[in-house]
Design a protein around this nucleic acid. Structure first.
Length: 493
RNA sequence: GGCAUCGUGGCCGAGUGGCUAGGCACAGCUCUGCAAAAGCUUGUACAGCGGUUCGAAUCCGCUCGAUGCCUCCA
């Protein structure tokens, strides 16, 4: 069952800039941390893509037999609007706006987040820590960084000293930036007096009297900086050095760069072996963003209530659509692309159903073991789901040929094929056959079967007016009849 | 302005120094009472211009274009 001993997994590592062979720190175990959402509004589809990519990665690692501890945080405090003096906490700002308690805001959007992810069939992470639950840990790290001399206190706030850090370490190694360039290109911001250098970032911010969310600290009442929470929570649950750290591409700089700096400053060594970045989902060719309103919410897609798409699309179709692109590529959402994915997805599900009904033969005209290995090869090559899906369609093609009587499969191979397909489609890709789960299916299929019988009787009597009427009217209701070699089947759209 | 990524056939989207991606759409054929479904076949694409090479869409350079980051964002 320890497939990882047979398969060589390669991962695109943003830190090395290459595809590296994955070797966990402790054989058989993987520690993975992914930056979760800031719960100050509903998750939009762009957010979901990142979490979906890591859900797929989590699933595949588990499938390979690794014991994975997957930590995905909830940012419920400390996320500043900007680093300027008037920096305001996103949660607190929203709370004032809506006349709610900050924790009420957090609760509302955390629930929304979970509900949305559930619809997409995400697995729960092993631990889902919150920033506010780890204030003590964050203060401890700040103390440690101060002790090492890489931070300074200014007027009740604590800042990370980037220039000092860069003397002994490499600030910018993840994002490919040089500190000199950054300094040369810094825009002159007003009210930066507290910071020694504009590149310095807050570890702890002093809370102004009107600030609602505040905690006591050795430097006075305040709240932690955004970058720090991920350092605190990742190292608390995964150790000072862990295997995989993931997140959206847009967090690479400065967020992840700062995480590296904080960890190296406090512990003296690099916190993460493999940095993974999921690319953006775009809409109208532009990145989805809460602040620019260029976004679409999952529920708007499921319900069809939006101005972009011609019809509703189910969560599995959306999931399939996203998995047809590699997670490191930018993907653009469009009606045409979703329509194409929807048809493809139904074809895949249809193939799976057809497989169950195949009659077994004496031989198999389809090299299943080598095909299976190609499926693994695709996933081992940096989780290449588009290639995996193309292989799945290859299997569908064979299934249809067998159904047509043009190829054969033995009982044993049929079971094996069924097993492999189920594993990849449902366990690894996390897709769901939503027609199956749509309830009432027993009644419906009974009724349709009856109509099929009536239609076949009519056809036998050459009463094509009746048979076509049954066929066409069923189609209008969304039931498509399919005349095959061994009788008639149907699908519901 | 700086850093980075990308530019693939009608659309979406993989990939590789020389050999079929795949899905959707379109066309022809097979099957069918007719369709649909399914199967088969065809399309010969890799932004432009140079260079390296026996050979490049794949490596290098330049040009053009797009996007991301540089300020909050997955």
């Amino acid at each position: 069952m320890q497939l990882f001993k047979q398969q060589t997994l390669k991962i695109s590592n943003s830190l090395s800039g290459k595809k590296d062979v994955f070797k966990p720190i402790k054989e058989g175990y993987v520690g993975m941390y992914v930056c979760g959402p800031t719960v100050y509004s509903n998750v939009h589809l762009g957010n979901c893509r990142t979490f979906m990519s890591f859900d797929m990665i989590f699933r595949y690692l588990k499938h390979l037999g690794y014991k994975v501890r997957y930590v995905r945080n909830i940012t419920d405090a400390g996320h500043l609007e900007n680093d300027a003096e008037d920096g305001e906490d996103k949660i607190a700002k929203k709370a004032k706006l809506e006349q709610l308690e900050p924790m009420e805001v957090v609760q509302r959007y955390t629930v929304d987040f979970h509900e949305t992810l559930q619809q997409f069939n995400f697995l729960s992470p092993s631990i889902e820590p919150t920033a506010t639950g780890h204030i003590i840990e964050q203060i401890e790290i700040i103390k440690e960084i101060l002790k090492k001399g890489f931070a300074y206190v200014a007027n009740g706030s604590v800042y990370f000293d980037v220039i000092k850090f860069n003397e002994t370490n490499d600030y910018g190694k993840l994002s490919g930036r040089k500190l000199e360039d950054m300094i040369a290109n810094t825009r002159a911001l007003a009210a930066q007096d507290e910071k020694k250098s504009p590149q310095d970032f807050a570890l702890w911010k002093k809370a102004e009297p009107q600030h609602i969310m505040r905690w006591p600290s050795p430097w006075g009442d305040g709240f932690p900086g955004w970058h720090l929470e991920c350092t605190a929570m990742s190292t608390k649950y995964l150790g000072d050095t862990f295997d995989i750290h993931g997140g959206g591409m847009d967090l690479k700089f400065p967020h992840h760069e700062c995480e590296i700096a904080q960890a190296e400053a406090s512990t003296g060594h690099s916190p993460v072996n493999y940095w993974m970045h999921a690319n953006m989902l775009t809409l109208n060719g532009k990145k989805m963003s809460k602040s620019t309103d260029n976004n679409i919410y999952p529920n708007e897609i499921f319900s069809g209530e939006n101005s972009i798409l011609s019809k509703p699309f189910s969560p599995s179709v959306v999931r399939f659509f996203m998995l047809q692109a590699h997670y490191t590529s930018i993907l653009d959402l469009s009606d045409d692309a979703l329509l194409a994915s929807e048809k493809g997805f139904y074809r895949l599900m249809e193939g799976l159903k057809n497989l169950e009904t195949l009659a077994a033969g004496d031989t198999t005209d389809f090299d299943i073991p080598s095909w299976e290995q190609r499926c693994y090869d695709a996933m081992n090559d940096d989780f290449n789901t588009p290639i995996l899906i193309s292989h799945l369609f290859e299997a569908v093609k064979h299934i249809n040929l067998i159904k047509e009587g043009k190829e054969n499969i033995t009982t044993k191979d049929k079971a094996s094929l069924q097993n492999i397909l189920h594993t990849f489609i449902f366990d690894v890709l996390g897709l769901e056959d939503q027609q199956e789960s749509s309830g009432n299916s027993k009644t419906l299929s009974g009724v349709v079967e009856l109509l099929i019988q009536l239609r076949n009787n009519a056809r036998a009597n050459k009463d094509f007016a009746t048979s076509d009427k049954i066929r066409d009217e069923l189609l209008e209701l969304g039931v498509q009849l399919k005349d095959g070699k061994d009788g008639t089947t149907f699908t519901v759209n």
